[in-house]
Design a protein around this nucleic acid. Structure first.
Lengths: 130, 130
DNA sequence: CCTTGACCTCAAGTGCGCTTGAACCATGAG
DNA sequence: CTCATGGTTCAAGCGCACTTGAGGTCAAGG
């Protein structure tokens, strides 16, 4: 399996090495193996980072993401992982729904030509409460 | 039309008064009318704030949101608003897609019982690139 | 009259998610 | 051998989105 240096990995995932070191420091990434003092990552780490980035974009904090991923490692934490995942599901649903409303609002607003996002009638249908 | 004090408004939209003052200070909210020195908001402001919160959750910075909403005010900025909105649409689409992948991943992972989010086979189908 | 409470301003502080800087080490090319 | 490249640690700094604190104003109520 292909091995990556921190710079190479950073390039692949579109981050800076400092960010990866930071992730390691807060326990989001496992402490990488060292070759002559340098971090060496298995290619599979890319998936984990992609996952982290997705979750992050979805509004999870790094601490929450660590919670989700740690559950994999800790054998006893399965229950915790279930609980966290289950509690987050409706949140994610709500979030997706809201984002779609926004997306459609922007699209409709462009289409309808009113050029006034705030007052656009098309936005009145849903009523984005709370 | 109903008028709101800052505290009342804050309660309605689930924020603190300080956040609303902050929004005003950065130009996200128009400088509210004052009655005896106090801010008085028209009820319609709730919609604007809801909009701001949605956009924010979708990953827009406050500066970007201000850009979107300012376009309403500035007559000449219609072109800018179109451009910004159009440029953001594919971003929003990509974002929704990614979030749905994450949501489904979490859901499937709960369902499949593998209890290993990171290595779950169900995640291998998509390949969250970039 | 005096207090209470909600509001005001302005400056400074907070937490998150990194980035930057200083000082150092190891490998490879010229 | 020398030096560039790219890595290391650790502490401090930064930008965003607010929050908090100090010190003051105003209107209603006991």
């Amino acid at each position: 399996m292909r091995q990556l240096g921190i710079g190479e990995l950073a390039r692949q995932v579109g981050m800076r090495p400092s960010a990866l070191r930071y992730y390691e420091s807060v326990g989001l990434l496992p402490a990488a193996e060292r070759a002559a003092g340098r971090r060496v990552y298995p290619a599979g780490i890319v998936r984990r980072i992609a996952l982290i980035k997705m979750a992050q974009r979805a509004g999870f904090t790094l601490a929450e993401i660590r919670g989700l991923l740690d559950a994999d490692a800790e054998r006893g934490a399965t229950r915790q992982w279930r609980a966290l995942a289950e509690s987050k599901l409706p949140e994610l649903d709500r979030f997706i729904e809201q984002t779609q409303i926004l997306r459609d609002a922007v699209a409709d607003c462009l289409a309808c030509g009113c050029m006034n996002f705030e007052k656009c009638e098309l936005l009145s249908a849903d009523g984005p409460g709370s």
